[in-house]
């Protein structure tokens, strides 16, 4: 996957990802997608192009358990989220729906950098800075879920949890 980096800060909570008022009336992520990150940066949703990559600071996705948060990121066409750490519930929710989260040092990536991600190879290539960044492997249980595209396809196929 390949896309432009959109850099955001530390502790980006799920309210900033999708505000309560925009998830109240629906659980269709496509309807919510224009409001992605609205209270953080009202113009950001319109700048994100399909395939683009969110590059965040620590503790991305903290706050509520709303699964709409990773769903809306996915519906906006974001191909992956990079951060040095992810909040626990968001982490599970994202992997459960097959949204790639890559845990890595994001400090050297600048907003607008062109990134190329080789998940199987375990490397993020910052084409703008001509620099490779490695990311942490998912724990085995989560990797198994992710490989099947999420928990629903995993359970349909395997009929049990990946433990």
């Amino acid at each position: 996957m390949k896309g432009t980096a959109h850099k955001i800060g530390d502790d980006i909570n799920t309210d900033y990802i999708i505000a309560g008022k925009h998830k109240r009336d629906t659980f269709d992520a496509a309807l919510m997608a224009p409001h992605l990150f609205e209270d953080l940066d009202p113009g950001l949703a319109s700048r994100i192009k399909p395939g683009d990559i969110i590059v965040a600071g620590k503790n991305f996705g903290c706050g509520s358990s709303r699964e709409a948060a990773p769903m809306v990121i996915q519906a906006a066409g974001v191909s992956a989220v990079l951060a040095p750490s992810f909040a626990r519930i968001f982490f599970r929710n994202a992997i459960n729906i097959g949204l790639p989260l890559l845990q890595c040092d994001t400090s050297a990536i600048d907003d607008g950098d062109l990134l190329e991600i080789d998940i199987a190879g375990g490397v993020i290539r910052d084409k703008t800075h001509k620099k490779d960044i490695s990311f942490k492997k998912l724990p085995e249980a989560m990797s198994a879920i992710f490989r099947e595209g999420g928990l629903v396809p995993y359970l349909k196929k395997h009929k049990q949890f990946p433990v």
């Binding site: 699964e67 519930i89 599970r92 929710n93 459960n96 928990l151 359970l155 949890f161």
Partner: peptide, 20 residues
């Protein structure tokens, strides 16, 4: 502990959940 909708759905079906 809090979980999302997919984990909730899986627990509704099985009565179980996986945890670290």
């Amino acid at each position: 502990t809090g979980v999302g909708s997919t984990d909730t759905a899986a627990a509704m079906l099985t009565g179980k959940m996986w945890f670290k």
